[in-house]
Design a protein around this nucleic acid. Structure first.
Lengths: 182, 182
DNA sequence: AATTGCATGTAAATTGTTACATGATTTT
DNA sequence: AAAATCATGTAACAATTTACATGCAATT
């Protein structure tokens, strides 16, 4: 279960409330893993029961802040170092491309144009984060920047690929003609 | 639910059994979406009940072949054209990178080396598919090749990124020093 | 005074994984 | 004759989403 380790990872940087953690899943982390508040709150409670987190007193508006414990840090480290990442990714936009052949060429190409535009928009959003984020000298900030660069390279590659693919379809090349071209 | 549309998409190309569809999820499709036979068999039954597929007679060893119906093709088209793709991807290797800062620099860099190697291996597997797949002139083959190219560009970008990231960490640059470099 | 945002939770339904269970056919 | 592969299914469990539900605090 990646959710608990994502929560431990976020809380390893700084204590936070369930609400704040939910926002982080919506923002930066959302590109790699998704979670709603309805999943986050019960998981935080469980992690606290297991001693990996410590729950603070209730603040304004019932806010509860969770802090990671030494056991929590150890578990996070164990996950990173001793377990193999699950490489079975889930990506619906990618899935759709396999089936685009059911559409007439021009519709398929138009679909890929839209995909390309979406990746370009995403790239602009990442560039904006890059420009406006408060970059510090901490290891956390350095790794965040490296993650951001990963996102930027990925979005750039996907945009270029979608543009290329739309062109291939419009040029009407058959699979046979494509052979030995890449 | 993407699973049903993935099944419709595969069956739009050719009739197949649940067993064969399971193999396709393990192979090519697995890079974009995963599904086990225990999820596939009941879903095929449901799709047949709804009239989107038609189940053939039982063949050798109880094999059942499903064929897509016109309603099934219409639903596949509707999904591709009229619905927005869910862009909330799930990717555990990406998630881990956000938290690599908890490791000492050399351990984090070693982790990224391993990631890079994994992407290079994946790329080789895709190249092997490229070399050995029976490329035809059909729209299906053309789109499969375009999907394969997507995977190759993605794997190449990720490998290059991981190698760059390991270098950045080993060079000991702080986040502040990284600024204005990209 | 009303709206928006902060803040937490639960319940029901759906989706997905792991484990259990069986049997025929082909290959070694 | 044994092992591997083909082939299908169900049950229990875990993860995730959607919907329901509440209330305080700050802004307009």
């Amino acid at each position: 279960m990646s959710l608990r380790h994502a929560l431990l990872g976020l809380l390893a940087a700084a204590p936070a409330s369930g609400y704040e953690l939910t926002k982080q899943f919506e923002m930066s982390l959302g590109n790699a893993w998704g979670a709603r508040h309805s999943q986050i709150y019960p998981e935080l409670r469980r992690l606290a029961e297991e001693g990996l987190l410590e729950a603070g007193d209730e603040g304004a508006r019932g806010r509860k802040e969770y802090t990671i414990t030494p056991d929590g840090r150890a578990e996070l480290r164990r996950w990173l170092v001793d377990t193999e990442p699950d490489r079975s990714a889930r990506n619906e936009p990618l899935l759709r491309v396999f089936f685009l052949w059911v559409l007439p060429d021009e519709e398929a190409a138009a679909y890929l144009d839209k995909e390309a535009a979406s990746y370009r928009t995403h790239l602009e959003a990442l560039d904006e984060i890059d420009r406006t984020a408060p970059w510090g000298r901490s290891p956390v900030a350095r790794m965040f920047r490296i993650s951001l660069e990963e996102g930027r390279r990925w979005a750039t590659t996907m945009a270029e690929w979608a543009e290329w693919a739309a062109g291939e379809i419009r040029s009407g090349r058959s699979a046979a003609e494509l052979e030995g071209m890449s």
